[in-house]
Amino acid sequence: MIRVLVAEDQSAVRAGLVLILGSAPDIEVAGEAADGEQAVALARELRPDLVLMDVQMPRMDGVAATRQVVAEGLADVLVLTTFDLDEYVFGALRAGASGFLLKNTDAAELLAAVRTVGRGEGLIHPAVTRRLIAEFASAPVREPAADRSVLDALTRREREVLSCLGEGLSNAEVAVRLEMAEATVKTHVSRLLGKLELRSRVQAAVLAQELGV
Rank of each mutant, 00 (worst) to 15 (best):
Q56A: 12
A113Q: 10
A172H: 11
E210M: 07
V150C: 15
G120A: 05
V29S: 08
A107K: 09
L50G: 07
A146P: 02
M1E: 06
A127P: 03
V213N: 06
R142D: 09
H125K: 12
V18R: 12
T82L: 10
D147V: 05
D106Y: 04
G194D: 09
V89T: 14
E160L: 13
D54C: 02
D147M: 04
R47M: 10
D147G: 02
M60V: 10
P25T: 07
A64Y: 03
E135D: 15
M180H: 06
E32Q: 15
Q10H: 15
D84L: 01
V63Y: 00
M53F: 14
R157D: 09
G99S: 10
S11T: 10
G31F: 03
D106L: 10
G120S: 11
A95S: 13
R201M: 03
D84T: 06
D86R: 07
D54E: 06
R148G: 10
A43K: 03
L211I: 01
L50I: 12
R201E: 11
T184S: 13
R191D: 11
L93A: 00
T187M: 09
D76W: 00
R94E: 15
L154F: 02
L169M: 14
R3M: 03
P144M: 06
L19E: 15
L101E: 11
H188Q: 15
L102D: 06
V6S: 04
A97W: 12
I124Q: 06
L111W: 05
R67N: 01
A183H: 13
E87H: 14
R44D: 10
A108W: 05
R177G: 06
L52S: 03
A172Q: 15
R67G: 01
D106V: 11
V51F: 06
K186V: 13
D106I: 01
A12T: 15
V18L: 02
G73S: 12
G194A: 11
A65R: 01
E135Q: 15
E37W: 08
